[in-house]
């Protein structure tokens, strides 16, 4: 798969607040629409923004929240945050086949060829692809590429997989069943946690401030209830980014060239205490976030150096 050849140039990465408001209206339309009437393919367009310069203040706030030193190197999770608005804009298009709100972020995969630094001028591209049927709905990938203005190849590529639960679209192939088909990297449990996070009630609001992702399921119990969650839930990418900080990417790959994968399990209902277990495997570091009381898994993933 590759980016659709048709590019639409935007002047800036769209803010997310307005997108969520539009998405709310659009999701409502999609929910009441008769099946088979709407688009059944991803939009054949790539969104592009040139001249994106990461903001130092926002970067510092992000790094402090995630427990990282405020260095001039953008954590891979911050690059995700930088391009997220553009991916959202693709999903908020009228011809996007699934309702943006209520979609569940089930997995995320980042390939960082080289680290991005403050002062770099970036071109950000985003598109949707791999729309496919899933046993409990429909999945789609949103791909974001971040390229430094002087480069040809992207320094950073992120693939976010979303599941629209209960949404079925006609004519879609069942491309893959689930991550369950691949073997579980933690078959014997998690051992003793290396790290324990005590996540306060306002964890979602705080991450929303530094990431711009103000999805209502993360902001308050009231807004989360509207989408079927008993309490506000932590952003998946917040938990994955904290795991990345605990692993310390520079220690796994001194040149900070790596793949960073995560699969999300049970949502983290706030407030909550999450145990993080780490395990070396060859050159890579496996991580898993879990609940010590219930033993349930919130996420697992790996940081693997690129050859």
């Amino acid at each position: 798969m590759s980016a659709p050849a048709t590019e639409k140039l935007l002047s800036a990465v769209p803010g997310l607040g307005g997108l969520y408001a539009n998405a709310l209206a659009k999701s409502a339309r999609l929910m009441v629409r008769a099946p088979g009437r709407g688009p059944t393919t991803t939009p054949q367009v790539t969104y592009r923004v040139d001249g994106v310069r990461p903001d130092a203040e926002q970067l510092t706030a992000y790094q402090h929240l995630l427990g990282e030193p405020a260095s001039d190197v953008l954590p891979a999770g911050f690059v995700h945050v930088t391009g997220f608005g553009l991916a959202m804009a693709v999903m908020a298009r009228d011809d996007f086949p699934l309702p943006l709100l209520g979609m569940v972020h089930v997995a995320n995969s980042v390939r960082q060829r080289e680290p991005v630094r403050i002062g770099d001028e970036l071109t950000v591209r985003a598109w949707a692809e791999r729309l496919r049927a899933h046993r409990s709905g429909t999945q789609v990938d949103l791909v974001v590429e971040v390229t430094r203005s002087e480069d040809v190849d992207p320094a950073w590529t992120g693939r976010s997989t979303y599941l629209a639960k209960g949404q079925t679209l006609p004519g879609l192939a069942l491309l893959e069943t689930d991550s369950a088909t691949s073997s579980d990297p933690w078959p014997e449990g998690y051992g003793e946690p290396a790290v324990r996070w005590r996540l306060a009630r306002d964890t979602g609001r705080r991450y929303a401030q530094v990431s711009g992702d103000r999805n209502p399921i993360h902001l308050s119990a009231l807004t989360a209830k509207a989408f079927g969650f008993p309490r506000a839930i932590a952003h998946g990418m917040y938990t994955a980014a904290r795991a990345l900080a605990a692993v310390d990417a520079a220690r796994v790959s001194p040149s900070e060239a790596f793949t960073w994968d995560v699969s999300f399990g049970k949502p983290v209902l706030l407030p909550s205490t999450v145990a993080l277990s780490l395990r070396r495997e060859g050159g890579s570091m496996q991580y898993a976030g879990w609940n010590e009381q219930s033993g349930k898994r919130h996420f697992h993933g790996a940081l693997t150096p690129l050859p």
Partner: peptide, 18 residues
């Protein structure tokens, strides 16, 4: 401990078991 969120006692409980 700032990096682990574990108190010294929680850390030592793990070492004690080990």
């Amino acid at each position: 401990e700032p990096r682990t969120g574990l108190s010294m006692g929680e850390h030592q409980a793990i070492t004690t078991r080990r």
